[in-house]
Amino acid sequence: MLISCPYCGPRDVSEFTYQGDATRTRPDPASADAAAWHEYVYERSNEAGPHREFWQHAGGCRAHVVVIRNTVTHEISSVAPARGDRI
């Protein structure tokens, strides 16, 4: 599998670390909403199909990227910097 790092170009998946479901929202840090924190930390959409997920180019530029990848075919339809940075 190749992931096109927006900074480094297409690189082998072995250079990346999977950081999981990118559809989760971290609650306000001061919030004591147990349900919201539970959902953020433990619940996953686990889509069969296009899946929005974080990867870190740990073996390269170390940036995090948001990848939309089909979990049934492994086809990657988009990769964008997680910071929404211009590069």
């Binding site: 950081q19 974080f54 870190q56 740990a58 170390r62 995090h64 997680a82 910071r83 929404g84």
Partner: peptide
């Protein structure tokens, strides 16, 4: 390192 980088990139850019 990865833990901190994740928070800087993803949570607190």
């Amino acid at each position: 390192m990865q833990h901190l980088e994740y928070f800087l990139d993803v949570v607190w850019p």
